[in-house]
Simulated scan of single mutants.
Amino acid sequence: MPRLRHLGTSAGLLSGTAVLALALTGCVPNTAVAEAEAIQVTLTDSSCTVKTDTAPAGPITFQVTNRGSDVNEFEVLAQDKLRIAGEKENIGPGTTVNYVVQLTEGSYFTACKKGMVGSPTSLAKFTVSTGAADTKTASESKQVAQAVTNYVSYVKDQTGQLLAATKTFAAAYEAGDDATARAQYPATRAFYERIEPTAEQFGDIDPALDLREADLEQGQTWTGWHRIEKDLWAPAGFTPSDAAGRAVLGRQLVADTQKLYDLVYAKGFTLTLDQISNGASGLMEEVSRSKITGEEETFSHTDLWDFKANVEGAEVAYGNVRAILLKKGSAGTSAAKKLDAEFATIDTLLAQYASGDGYVSYTKLTTTQVKELSDSVNALSEPLSQLTSILVK
């Protein structure tokens, strides 16, 4: 499900590309962190209060307690209030969680989001000061740099394939060739689903491309894949777009995908080790939140294509940091062993539902089969959620 951002424009995002080298990272649970070391955060239905507004650069632990009546989300935003530096989602009422975010020196904002929809609220400045000196050896630094280079190349490759496939898909959709467009829909979306955490860093891009109807805010214009999905698999009582409407939606889909491509290929674009590992964890959260429930592809029921793409993206991200993980002592070795096994298990499970070049409709799965997939997702998500906390030590 996309993160909604309405604090700026796409033009603003393009102008900020040059500073994407900032070490903005996602968040991961870290229950081993002592309570005394964590920054206390309290969420309510109307606010979020952070005990301190400053911390030294490096791994920062937040201990977040939700005292409200609804699920909530805590975020750390970059100075432009658009890019996500860290976020912890699905914090239920009465729940306390710890998570770690790796931040470089600079200015940020903390915020929360009741119900996990809409724009962030309770924005408050958060300053990261100079931290301890980097103690990584030259060998480890070289290994990290190579992992980042390899993964950035992967993101660029997937984005390039996404743009080319989207143009072909949009042409079929605009021409009214529904059979061709339906066949291309899930395969084209797979390129996006593999790298969605990267797209989510760019504010309005993800909602423009991947917003579901259930997450629309009042007065918001619905564009992107799922709006077109509804035309192609029109439910009873719904009138699909006419030729003019299809032209608008198809061209907008290509234009927004082009924006993503331009941002990823912009000079200075890079990622950090933490973004890679947290991205792997985030992809599995996507699976557990919307693919397992069948909510992502409401009309086409092509959820298993998305499911597989999310797993593939997580596996590539993990593969890029695995060698570094193995050098993190017994904790790293143990985590790698478990992750290897859980990825193999979930790949085997998904293979059971392959059909031709794709997957069966999600409606074909029984409750027992869905439960089996859900259990496998949970088993994989647990060690992935610990990945960043081990890597940043």
Results as ranks from 00 to 15, higher is better:
A183V: 06
P186R: 04
R194N: 06
P197G: 06
S153F: 12
T188Y: 00
A172R: 07
E200M: 07
A208S: 15
D210R: 03
E174D: 14
K167Q: 00
Y185A: 04
Y185R: 07
E200Y: 05
E193N: 01
Y151K: 04
A165W: 03
Y151M: 03
R189W: 01
D178W: 14
L162A: 05
D157M: 12
G160L: 05
E213N: 08
Y154L: 03
A172I: 15
Q161A: 10
T168W: 09
A183E: 11
E213C: 13
R194C: 14
R189K: 03
D157P: 04
G203M: 04
N150G: 13
D178S: 13
R212Q: 14
A164C: 09
D178G: 13
D177F: 00
E193I: 00
A208K: 13
I195D: 05
T198D: 00
A175S: 15
E196Y: 14
F191Y: 09
E213W: 09
A165H: 05
T168D: 06
V152S: 08
E174T: 12
D206F: 03
R212E: 14
Q161N: 12
I205K: 05
E213Q: 14
S153Q: 15
I195E: 11
A164P: 09
Q184T: 04
Q201H: 15
Q158K: 06
